[in-house]
């Protein structure tokens, strides 16, 4: 019995020693929560961004938890509750969150080499539609919902500028911009509202012959999808996060992480970069998000 107790004591002591002698960094701060807007399926999003989260966590020496939602309502609820420390927004939700919940942009995406993106309306090449005015009375399918910055808001702005108001055309919504483009390819709508490089997306090229599509109108190029941090986050930490993201492009491992996230690189961005979005949102949705 004594022997057993002795062994247990030794093993307990060894365990203590092992625990205390571990050279791994200890995460002392509270975990940061990183939220990503539901641009893609939640599981796909998690798979794409988990390497980035791990890298960021390691560089910041902070535990970071990736949180994905499967719809905008849930996502927005979290934003409204300011549950996220770091958020990858779409442009509309960023400008909406900034005055309401204080999120501030630190960096933005460069995708397929583009640091800016514009809303674009696409039609089939064999379509009789030659200008935006020809869309009067036609059905336009927008990628995503009414909160989609480029696919809906920016393209609707283009329509407004062309003199087409709500009710002059039929609105329909696809799950996302690529699906809007594919729907138009298959003649389910006269035009598609999407981004200005939707035809370059590999999975679009895989599904349709993009040569049969053309851009009818392309709007003003605007800052791409932002990454923002909570208002209460210290500037030093925000800068660290920003630098960590921007520097990913400088290492092979970082490039792999970026590739996994389908992002070319990150570049620095400020809130002013999204004033153009605010202007368009105000015009289209009559929502004023200027600070």
């Amino acid at each position: 019995m004594k022997i057993i107790l002795l062994l247990l004591s030794i093993s307990f002591l060894l365990g203590e020693v092992k625990t205390t002698s571990a050279s791994e960094p200890t995460v002392k701060a509270a975990p940061l929560k990183l939220g990503i807007f539901p641009r893609r399926r939640a599981d796909a999003t998690a798979k794409m961004f988990q390497p980035l989260v791990e890298s960021l966590s390691k560089q910041l020496n902070v535990s970071i938890v990736l949180e994905t939602t499967h719809d905008f309502a849930s996502f927005w609820e979290n934003v409204a509750n300011q549950e996220y420390d770091i958020v990858h927004f779409n442009q509309y939700h960023y400008v909406k969150s900034h005055p309401n919940y204080g999120y501030r942009v630190i960096t933005r995406n460069v995708e397929l080499g583009y640091s800016k993106i514009a809303g674009a309306l696409l039609v089939r090449r064999d379509s009789q539609i030659k200008s935006l005015k020809d869309l009067k009375g036609k059905k336009i399918v927008f990628g995503g919902g009414r909160g989609a910055m480029q696919a809906y808001i920016a393209t609707t702005y283009l329509l407004r500028q062309a003199g087409l108001n709500k009710g002059d055309y039929f609105e329909q919504f696809a799950l996302n911009p690529p699906k809007a483009c594919i729907a138009t390819f298959y003649r389910q709508a006269a035009a598609a509202g999407a981004g200005n490089y939707v035809l370059e997306l590999p999975h679009v090229k895989k599904q349709i012959n993009t040569d049969e599509m053309k851009y009818l109108a392309v709007g003003e190029s605007m800052a791409h999808l932002p990454w923002a941090v909570k208002q209460s986050m210290p500037d030093e930490q925000a800068t660290k996060i920003k630098n960590a993201l921007i520097n990913l492009i400088n290492s092979e491992k970082g490039k792999t992480i970026l590739k996994s996230a389908q992002i070319t690189k990150f570049i620095s961005s400020t809130d002013q970069d999204y004033d153009a979005h605010r202007t368009i949102i105000k015009n289209v949705l009559n929502e004023d998000f200027f600070p």
Partner: peptide
């Protein structure tokens, strides 16, 4: 939202139908 999702589904049905035909 329901209307929009239904609309999206309808659109996908239309696309799938067109895709079938294609």
């Amino acid at each position: 939202r329901i209307q929009q999702r239904s609309s999206s589904l309808q659109l996908e049905l239309g696309v799938a139908s067109a895709k079938n035909i294609t």
